[in-house]
């Protein structure tokens, strides 16, 4: 349950996420995921609270404090505002039609937001946090136009380089191919967040989800249809891929600039670097911020 509240002490508006912990009953594992059953403090909220608490950056949502009493956990965080997904769907089609003045505004806004998205991700990566759930819904827009990263339920602290991790991460539409193809315990690290950020970028420009698959294989097909079926899979992904992949149709890469109408060449170049198959050749958040797309003054003009 999430409620908005105002502090009587400081007058600060905050958002409270309240999680009820079920009474600990041994042998009853049905609610384990939600309540942590008899594992004590629930795993996912422990990670969310600790990792959010570890962050101190203007582009990451601030967790003010955590309370825990009588089996009820409350996470108090700053109130930000609408998330990007809802914001995009609140805009009319005109904003995403080429050669309209409103489209120009969306392109500007996309660049303005993207810079903040990458700053938030770069910060988290620099302190060793893998987000594993980057998507428009997890970016909140504050009233002054600052973007704040949230959604740390799936995040994890990972200072050691590549280790096998769980596959059940990242909303399917934003999931990087190395997670989909990697089997039960795929090896992945920071580049998965960049892939998701790339999908988020495209969504902010076009107003539509870039790859919208209904299953893992469907997702893979959508990706290959746009970016081309990799000709030499082992080389493209740097790990052993399941054999079924060779049975997939051989698509040629499509032009990203056609898909993202109106986006300047630098923007298309940045996106293509964020959506590279090989995780190691994918651009890092830090390098992305140095990309020509972000050079110069891009403050927002009111329309």
């Amino acid at each position: 349950m999430v409620v908005k509240c105002e502090s009587r002490v400081s007058g600060k508006v905050m958002v409270v996420k309240r999680i009820k912990k079920m009474p600990s009953v041994s042998g009853d594992a049905s609610d384990e995921d939600e309540a942590g059953a008899d594992q004590g403090f629930p795993v996912r909220y422990l990670r969310e609270a600790c990792l959010l608490r570890a962050c101190n950056h203007p582009n990451v949502m601030k967790l003010e404090f955590v309370t825990y009493h009588e089996g009820q956990i409350e996470l108090f965080s700053e109130f930000v505002g609408l998330n990007v997904e809802d914001y995009i769907s609140s805009l009319s089609d005109e904003y995403f039609t080429r050669n309209k003045q409103k489209h120009e505004w969306v392109l500007q806004l996309g660049r303005y937001f993207m810079k903040q998205v990458l700053k938030g991700i770069d910060y988290c990566h620099s302190i060793g946090i893998l987000l594993r759930d980057v998507k428009p819904r997890n970016f909140l827009i504050s009233s002054d136009g600052t973007l704040k990263l949230t959604g740390f339920v799936l995040a994890r602290f990972s200072l050691l380089p590549e280790e096998p991790l769980t596959q059940q991460v990242v909303t399917l539409s934003y999931r990087a191919p190395e997670i989909i193809l990697g089997g039960t315990y795929p090896v992945y690290t920071a580049p998965v967040d960049i892939w998701s950020a790339g999908c988020t970028f495209a969504e902010m420009i076009t107003g539509r989800t870039l790859f919208e698959g209904d299953s893992e294989i469907g997702q893979l097909l959508k990706i290959f249809k746009l970016l081309g079926t990799p000709s030499d899979c082992n080389k493209s992904f740097c790990f052993e891929v399941p054999s079924y992949i060779e049975l997939l149709p051989q698509w040629q890469p499509q032009s990203l600039s056609e898909r993202l109408e109106g986006l300047c060449d630098e923007g298309v170049d940045l996106l293509s670097r964020m959506l590279l198959y090989h995780p190691c050749s994918r651009i890092t958040a830090r390098d992305a911020l140095k990309h020509p797309y972000f050079q110069g003054d891009h403050s927002l003009m009111k329309t």
Partner: peptide, 17 residues
């Protein structure tokens, strides 16, 4: 318990019992 929850896969975390 805290360390295991922070680092391990959730199904590897031991039970209090």
């Amino acid at each position: 318990m805290i360390a295991a929850k922070f680092e391990e896969r959730p199904d590897h975390v031991p039970y209090v019992q």
